[in-house]
């Protein structure tokens, strides 16, 4: 069996964490929002609480390196295979969970009046307001992006500790500020469609994936 697939199976041994944890968090937040929507006046605004699953994916990305990488290397897995296997796992998990989010959005639409209480939980204006396949594609891309981003954080922390992490954050803030100061870039983003944004996110995910790979190559455990 291919080494990458073995790494995927290694992560699957922790499936309770990877699969159950984000959905438990989302279910809890959903329940809270459902109750709030039921007792308050109907609102047109989506809750945006859907973000919690993305935050969970970021955390899972960090955890997929943290304690798991040293044991993987102890078993003789190369850094390259570990990284490729983990990224493959991230993409598969994001695709599956993105599909589940799409189904839940369809369900929310089917209930009419948002679960009967005017709750817009899985429908978020602008970004998750298009046809089902765009919802799936955007959810998938977003989840994969956050996971890969978390992986890079985990790798930077393993390699350079807390000061490396701070420098890493500072570098990102600098990049964003420079980008924001550039007038044409700001204009590019304001004119972007939801589908276009998904494309940008996918490109960003690819950049993060490459950055993480460059960082893990000389990591020591």
């Amino acid at each position: 069996m291919n080494m990458c697939l073995k790494v995927v199976r290694y992560h699957l041994a922790q499936r309770v964490m990877y699969v159950a944890a984000p959905w438990a968090a989302l279910a809890f937040v959903f329940a809270v929002n459902l109750i709030i929507a039921a007792v308050t006046a109907p609102s047109q605004d989506p809750t945006k609480a859907l973000a919690v699953i993305y935050v969970c994916f970021f955390a899972l990305g960090i955890l997929s390196i943290g304690r798991s990488l040293p044991f993987g290397l102890a078993l003789g897995v190369s850094r390259r295979s570990y990284y490729a296997g983990t990224a493959l796992f991230a993409v598969a998990l994001a695709a599956a969970d993105g599909l589940a989010l799409t189904l839940l959005q369809a369900l929310e639409r089917a209930t009419g009046r948002g679960w009967g209480v005017h709750l817009g939980f899985f429908r978020v204006s602008y970004i998750f307001a298009g046809p089902w396949y765009l919802t799936w594609l955007t959810s998938f891309t977003g989840l994969a992006l956050l996971f890969v981003y978390g992986m890079w954080f985990g790798i930077v922390y393993r390699r350079w500790d807390i000061f490396g992490l701070l420098a890493f954050l500072a570098a990102q803030v600098t990049v964003v500020l420079v980008g924001a100061a550039w007038h044409s870039i700001g204009h590019f983003f304001t004119a972007l469609s939801a589908a276009g944004l998904t494309g940008v996110l996918a490109a960003l995910a690819a950049v993060l994936l490459a950055g993480g790979f460059a960082t893990i190559r000389r990591i020591t455990v």
């Binding site: 922790q14 304690r67 798991s68 040293p70 044991f71 102890a74 003789g76 897995v77």
Partner: peptide, 14 residues
């Protein structure tokens, strides 16, 4: 891979 094993004294386990 599959040919060398080193479990360290301070091994981190998942």
């Amino acid at each position: 891979a599959g040919r060398v094993v080193l479990i360290r004294e301070d091994q981190t386990f998942p």
